[in-house]
Design a protein around this nucleic acid. Structure first.
Lengths: 219, 219
DNA sequence: GTATAAAGTTAGATTAATCTAACAAAATTT
DNA sequence: AAATTTTGTTAGATTAATCTAACTTTATAC
């Protein structure tokens, strides 16, 4: 069994590795808000537990075992988020901090019950895939809204950033998953995008925002 | 903010004090499965945080502040148990270990939401009172089934022991809260009691079991 | 390609929570 | 009331997770 601390390292390694392929000590220490020697120490420990491949001065990599355990923690996190939104009526901007704690609960049956009550969801409230019972995650290849062309109509499938500030920003603009968005124009100057959706005929979204919105093209 | 460890000491102090008025180091160390010097150390720490009245060789007592904080942890525990049974369809014998972990979640809004979804329950699934938002607990003065007389008809109001073994014992015998029980005979030899209830005309319950069953006399 | 900067490691200290061993006080037994 | 047992404390060690300071390796810039 891993400590809560170890679980947080595994999860961070998994999350960073999904964006960038490799993980280095500096980035991990920044993510976890710890000093680098602290991270080095823990990498040696996780290496001795066969959760991380660690060699001095080399990039960090999770082992298969490490990936599985990290995936299972993220599974618990995302199931919890879904439960909080669907069954407990929290807003998608309010669930992250609670799930961050509940993901460490040691009780397989607790999460199985959640899964069952939610009817085995595949995605969390932010559109991120929920890893399966083996910790395996299936990535859909969505496009960033910032990479779409003028004239396209797309469906909002997921958000990359799940900070409550960003989600509140979307709430205020009436944006939620499944929304159909038409791209009316792209400003060459700052790459901001003018879109229409729902009852809104003309909304401008900054490039920073559009890079955090993942969309599916209409078939 | 108190650490998880400190919370466990507070809760144990509160629970023991409710049975016996006083708490001593030996009993607390036994309850928490820790050695006595460990407990003495922590008592000094909790004393410096004004949560416990501590004097060498004197019995331990929670301060008002300590009682409030302990009450609030127990509130979270019991709300969780109720939520697990009512909303997640767990049996009353399966909720203790999960609630033991969830009671440490730091998120007032999470427990407020539970409370609201449960429509502000006053009792947990074992009939124990749920402390209010100030950590105050209201004790009903139930009788032990073992103290009732032959001929009386009583209603099962609460169970003292919430171990899953005991609760499964009750499940097997079709016993649950609210059940009307008639006392048919008391064996002078071992104080076991013969009762009838529901469709069962003659069940014998040991004194050990009856001491853990709290009942209300019919008005 | 050397100098500088960034990233990473080593060594040793710190804190919270635990332990054991030895001692001291209080309670119980005879 | 003296002896014994139980209870409680003190002192010092241990473990997990963190830190700072100093040093080393790798990467970047000129």
């Amino acid at each position: 069994m891993n400590s809560l601390t170890e679980e947080n390292y595994l999860k961070a390694l998994f999350n960073i590795a999904n964006k960038a392929g490799e993980v280095n000590v500096a980035e991990l220490s920044k993510t976890l808000d710890l000093k680098m020697p602290t991270v080095t120490n823990m990498m040696k420990k996780l290496s001795s537990k066969k959760l991380v491949h660690y060699e001095s001065y080399k990039p960090l990599r999770l082992t298969e075992k490490g990936k599985k355990e990290a995936g299972l923690i993220i599974r618990k996190h995302r199931l919890t988020e879904m439960f909080l939104v669907d069954k407990m009526k929290f807003g998608w901007e309010d669930v992250h901090d609670i799930a961050e704690q509940i993901e460490h609960i040691q009780s397989p049956v607790f999460f199985e019950k959640m899964d069952e009550l939610l009817d085995f969801p595949k995605l969390d409230p932010h559109g991120s895939p929920i890893p399966d019972r083996n910790g395996k995650i299936e990535w859909k290849d969505y496009n960033k809204l910032s990479d779409c062309a003028v004239g396209e109509t797309v469906k909002l499938a997921a958000v990359i950033n799940t900070s409550s500030e960003f989600l509140k920003f979307l709430n205020v603009r009436g944006m939620r998953l499944g929304l159909k968005i038409k791209i009316k124009a792209i400003e060459p100057f700052d790459k901001s995008i003018v879109v229409s959706y729902g009852k809104r005929q003309e909304e401008t979204l900054s490039n920073v925002a559009c890079e955090r919105l993942l969309v599916e093209k209409e078939k």
